[in-house]
Nucleic acid binder design. Structure first.
Lengths: 242, 242
DNA sequence: GCGCGTTTAATTGTCTGACATTTTAGTCTC
DNA sequence: GAGACTAAAATGTCAGACAATTAAACGCGC
């Protein structure tokens, strides 16, 4: 765990990188205690505030946790599933919104991945998943529902579909694709006619999963893909005209 | 952008959260300059080092960049595709390694997602992608190749497959699933017989993509999934016996 | 010897003040 | 008017100090 003493720029970044590498490479195991801030300051030959800034960088990435008191210090942290999930969504959302990925690309990716889950979900979905999907379909049919709430419910429906596959890694990876699309979906105005079509397809998907019919679920998802793409195009055109 | 003055704990974390929310919600746009550290310190009524720690947290997440000098300061940063890609791989790898996801789950997720790319890749793969795949197949057949290098080549082959779909969002999401599996794959000892089978399937996949035959590529991927699962099981058993 | 309260030491969290470094903008001179 | 110089503003770093927190060590009575 060394740093380049000649390069005076970004000392705290260098220190953070050195420690991060030690953690990622497995040199430091979960719950292992890092040296105290003063010790690190001595090791790297910098001041304590500089070490602190480095540690904050690692804390921001959920790589370490700190604890005050006599037996306190910085500890290598086990990255929890929920944190990784949240982090993935944040990163994906920022990537899509800041890099202006076009709707078509994001939509294609999302549905391609979802269709990968459909056969597994048809096999393994529990009654819980089906109940969630039915509940969300019901919510989507409520009159006077705002576009934003409709999108929320749409995401919840699809999350249930994905979770139905019973594979947390799949759910984790999909979260980025599904949730990150929400800002893009929110630009669409859903007419009652649009909603009816979507709700119809959602119902077909839920029915197919209940019957454990993977290929029918896949077909309905394919239709939903095409329909969502059409809606997206219209919204983009309307936006361009404005 | 306010913080709770009563809660004295984790001031820097609170400040970081306040600023992060402002960025994510879109209140601050790309390249917008944040107030200077002294100004932020006044605003939040804390000292400059505390503000600095908060800014370091944001810098660690690639949300801001800082620039020294008269017109310097902290600026909202455009998250680049490459950074998001790298970040996603890091998070996914840590999640898989630290949470001891079993091989079967990770493998299933990886190949399910890859199969989602196959039809698109069959349509759109360029000669470049095909050339990369052929080159990696050739590399995999080289005698005396270490297991680790074989895995590297395997990942490169599959990355070419995924990239062939021509959808950066898809490539981004898949990266987490494919690359993060590498540590798990590295626990497998590939005999010559194993390699021959895998190379055969890779060749079938490359052939299918070259012929733009998506369903054949899918079928080969399905076989590869099953075969990899078998190898993984054997490796896990060998590991357990040891 | 044992249980309980107290002290004490170690560690992080924060503050104050200072200086170094970097970059730009303005100013002054020729 | 062009170029060199200077000043200012901002981040980067440092030193030292104190507060807050926590757990272990200690001492005391029983």
């Amino acid at each position: 765990m060394k740093i380049d003493p000649k390069n005076k720029a970004d000392l705290s970044a260098q220190i953070a990188k050195a420690i991060r590498d030690a953690i990622i490479s497995g040199d430091m195991i979960v719950d292992e205690r890092l040296p105290s801030e003063s010790e690190l300051a001595d090791q790297f030959d910098v001041s304590r505030p500089t070490v602190r800034e480095a540690l904050k960088r690692l804390a921001a990435q959920n790589l370490i946790r700190t604890q005050r008191g006599a037996t306190g210090g910085a500890f290598v942290r086990r990255l929890s599933y929920d944190e990784a999930y949240a982090q993935h969504i944040t990163t994906s959302t920022l990537l899509l919104s800041m890099n202006a990925v076009d709707f078509e690309t994001a939509c294609e990716a999302r549905f391609a991945l979802e269709r990968a889950c459909a056969p597994l979900s048809a096999q393994r979905r529990t009654p819980d998943h089906l109940a969630t999907m039915r509940a969300e379909i019901h919510r989507q049919a409520q009159p006077g529902l705002s576009d934003e709430r409709f999108c929320d419910s749409d995401v919840a429906f699809h999350r249930a579909l994905v979770d139905g596959a019973g594979n947390p890694v799949l759910s984790y990876q999909l979260a980025g694709a599904v949730e990150a699309m929400q800002p893009l979906m929110n630009m669409i105005t859903f007419t009652q006619r649009n909603r009816d079509v979507i709700i119809g397809l959602h119902t077909r998907i839920a029915d197919a999963l209940e019957m454990q019919n993977g290929s029918d679920a896949d077909a309905a998802l394919a239709e939903l893909t095409a329909y969502t793409l059409t809606l997206g195009e219209e919204a983009m055109e309307a936006r361009a005209r404005r």
